[in-house]
Each structure stands twice: as C-alpha cells, then as structure tokens.
Amino acid sequence: MNLLGIAEQGLILGFVALGVFMSFRVIDLADLTPDGSYVLGGAVTVSLLYRGIPWYYAIICAFIITGISGFFTAVLYNKFKMNSLLASILIMTMLYSVNLRIMDGPNISVPKDISEETVLYSESTSLDNFLGDLNISAEQPDKKENRKTEYVSPFNNLSDGKDFLLLLIILLFSITVLSVFLKTDFGILLRGYGGNKEGVTSLGVNKNILSITGLFIGNGFAGISGGIFSLYAGFSDVNMGQGIVVTSLAAIIIGEILISRFNILYNLLCPVVGAVVYEILLSFAMKYGYKIGFQPGDIKLLTSFFIVIVIGFRTLEVKKWLKLKM
C-alpha cells in the first residue's frame, strides 16, 4: 500500500473537512452546500486552466466563487428564514446544474501539460503558411517558449513526497490564517455566534454578517478542496461531491476523538488529522475488507454508520439505553 499517496488524499480531504468544521462546528449551522461547492471548486479550477490561468490563481478564484455559493445559502437562511439544511440542499441542487454548465458536460479533464497546446499552435501556424503570407509567425516562437515553462498542474502523482509537501504547506498556511482570524475580535464574535445565535443581536451586531462569513469560508474551503482534487486526479466530475459532507463529518469526528482534548488552535487541526486517518482506515477497508464480503460501494454506508455510532455514544440517553457507564 502506498501510504504517502493515501496521506495526500487525506490532506486534500482535509481542506473540505476544514470547511465543514467551519459551518458545523464554529458557527454551528448544518450546511450541505459543500456537496455542490466541492464540485464547483473543481469545475472552476479546471475550466480556468483551459484559459491559461495558472493553477494557484485558479484555486483562489475557486475559493471566492464557491464562497459566494455559501453566501447564497446564508441569504436563504437569513432573509427567507429557511432552515439551514433546506437552504443548503436547494443551493446544492442548483449547483449541480451550474456545474454541468461550467464544465459543459458531466466531467472535464485537466489539460495535462502544455505540449498539447503547442501542437495546436504549430498546426495553426502551418495552416497560416498554407493560406499565404499572413505575417504573424513572428509572434509564435516566444509564445511557445513562454508557455512551455509552465506546468498546468503542480502535482506529479509520483508519490515522491513533493506532492505531499506542497499539500501540507498550503494546508498549514490555511490553518494558520484561519486560527489568526478566529483570534481577532470578529473571529471571537463568529465563535460566539456558534454557541448563541440570538446573543450577538443583543450585542448590537447584525448576525446575518456572521452566518454569511461562516458559510463563505466553509464553502470556500470546500472549493479549494475540489479544485486541488481535480488538479491532483486530473479531472473534475459532477458527481465527485456526493456525500463529501458526511465524509468530512466522519473526518472531523475522528480528529476530535484523537486530539480535541488538547484544545489547540481552536481545534482546527481535528478535521485535518481526522481526514488523513479516515483515508488510511478507508484504504485498509478496501484492501482487506473483501475477505469479509466488503464492497467499495459499502463505503458510504459504513461512513454514515460510523457517524451514527459516535454521535450515539456521546448521547447520554443512548449510553443509558445500552447500560454503559463511560
């Protein structure tokens, strides 16, 4: 088993888990939008790559655009007084159609490297030559050279540690920024809103701003995750977000079991550590599970079942019911 590759997938999952942590834990709003915004992140990133935009700008755009989808969920929640679950299901469903539009189909692959496009240019050049003396060939050579030096995707999929390092750096940077943000007065307010939604109104704060901010960041990270996944896997698919919120919740719960007792960095490390452990557990299940009749399609069942069990065990009534003293 390739542990490094699994860890890399865990880190990618870590981004969306971080986003889900933001909505479900920090501001305590159940938000299912990431099932759609994760794909939106991938769709935006890949289609921007086709426009020749470098991957890091594409990821930043994905963050902003998916953040805006979270903003719309917040608007339905605040202004239309919808339950956050219903609001997010509606936006998520809309995003399905939007994603099909953006990708112009159910999936889209990442332009692998520039050589494909180089071919395109030389073709058109020979066409121009054929057509006659349109004097644009002078521009062609340096265009070629410029683009040849850039790789479309930063990942080499070689499991040589470089991908892992890059992912880790981006993730640690994000966590640092988030934890600094949560330390500011506005961040305190955001965390306070999570525990007491009406209380912030008594402070003279417009609470709508807080749900908007929380859902923007939450979905923004889902977008980053979807974008990075697409770069890493080489494609974006309209169904790849299905169940991503549940998977993220499982990751968060695993992380909380492991490290929430230390209460560091507002528990922002829980979703990330949890995501890596989740991927490792998953790959074990895939590798050895067939012996007990386990199929890949059972993953969603098991993941959800895991969440039910953990939440159940935390609940006093279930403990009593099982006559456990923990």
Partner: peptide
C-alpha cells in the same frame, strides 16, 4: 444561557461585551 457565549472563555465574553 441567553446572555453569554458558552463556547467562549470568560475573557472572550468580556471582550465581546
């Protein structure tokens, strides 16, 4: 419970006030 922020520390509650 309605006038305080349970997830925050006492210090952070004072800051919000």
């Amino acid at each position: 419970d309605s006038g305080v922020f349970p997830e925050l520390t006492i210090e952070e509650n004072l800051i919000l006030g």
